[in-house]
């Protein structure tokens, strides 16, 4: 028996909006500690990892570990029927081939349930070890989204370079070039507006903007984004989900021609 009640149902709606274009089908894994997902995009270039810890749910019951295969497009269709203020409860019986999403309006005057068919998905689960990164940049997520969107109108790839001067996002295309430098800035009114750079050594890596723009769809989940960079390792673009967990995206740097 599985029953997960999330008072802030909009979080789950935002999670689906963030990942549905990158991943078609995925197994959601539920255990005593939380609700999680790890999936690759269809070309096996990018990886997404989601964690929603049990303590973030108002009610969390998961009697045994369960993996539920879902088509994210279909799941998103169902979650779109929930209001932004609705409480969302996920329910599944042991051995069932369906999951039920229950939506309750805040004043309990409307209750809806949507039952979705589960699917068998063969997926590989990758082990991601803890790693030391050469540079970790934390910046406003909206700023990062804006930069990726702006640069993608000029080029296909972004070079992210971190030096003690700041973090530079560069691209080039047929019409010209662009460079955007964000300097460390901690003298802001709100901590989420800060740009903070932790650098052990300078790093400069090239990434496909198409994927970066896809990751930026998680922007509504968090005011800040953390970008962890190391040569020879995939970048980790992390959006923390307040009090609950995170969505992390992994993407390998492009090989220089």
């Amino acid at each position: 028996m599985l029953e997960l009640r999330l008072v802030q149902g909009s979080l789950l709606k935002k999670v689906l909006e963030a990942i549905k274009d990158l991943v078609n089908d995925a197994n959601f894994d539920c255990s005593a500690t939380g609700f999680s997902l790890q999936a690759m995009d269809s070309s096996h270039v990018a990886l997404v990892a989601l964690l929603l810890r049990n303590e973030g749910f108002e009610h969390y019951r998961c009697d045994r570990n369960i993996s539920m295969g879902m088509n994210l497009g279909n799941m998103n269709k169902m979650l779109k029927c929930a209001g932004n203020d609705d409480i969302i409860t996920l329910k599944a019986d042991d051995g069932s081939d369906t999951v039920t999403f229950m939506f309750e309006s805040p004043n309990q005057d409307k209750i809806a349930d949507f039952e979705m068919k589960l699917m068998d998905i063969d997926s590989e689960h990758l082990g991601i070890p803890e790693a030391e990164y050469h540079a970790i940049v934390r910046m406003p997520s909206a700023e990062f989204a804006r930069i990726c969107k702006d640069l993608s109108s000029i080029g296909d790839t972004v070079v992210i370079s971190v030096t003690k001067e700041g973090v530079k996002f560069s691209t080039k295309g047929d019409i010209g070039t662009a460079n955007i430098v964000c300097r460390q800035n901690t003298t802001v009114d709100k901590p989420e507006e800060a740009t903070v750079i932790e650098m052990k050594e300078p790093v400069s890596l090239t990434f496909a903007l198409r994927y970066m723009n896809s990751f930026a769809k998680a922007t509504p989940l968090s005011h800040t984004v953390t970008i962890s960079l190391s040569s020879e390792l995939p970048v980790v673009v992390e959006y923390k989900i307040e009090d609950m967990g995170y969505v992390r995206f992994y993407l390998a740097p492009k090989i220089e021609e």
Binding site: H44, Y250, K254
Partner: peptide, 14 residues
């Protein structure tokens, strides 16, 4: 995808 390593090549399958 040109010059784009797969994510598989960095992490072991569990």
């Amino acid at each position: 995808i040109e010059n784009q390593p797969l994510i598989h090549s960095f992490y072991m399958v569990n």
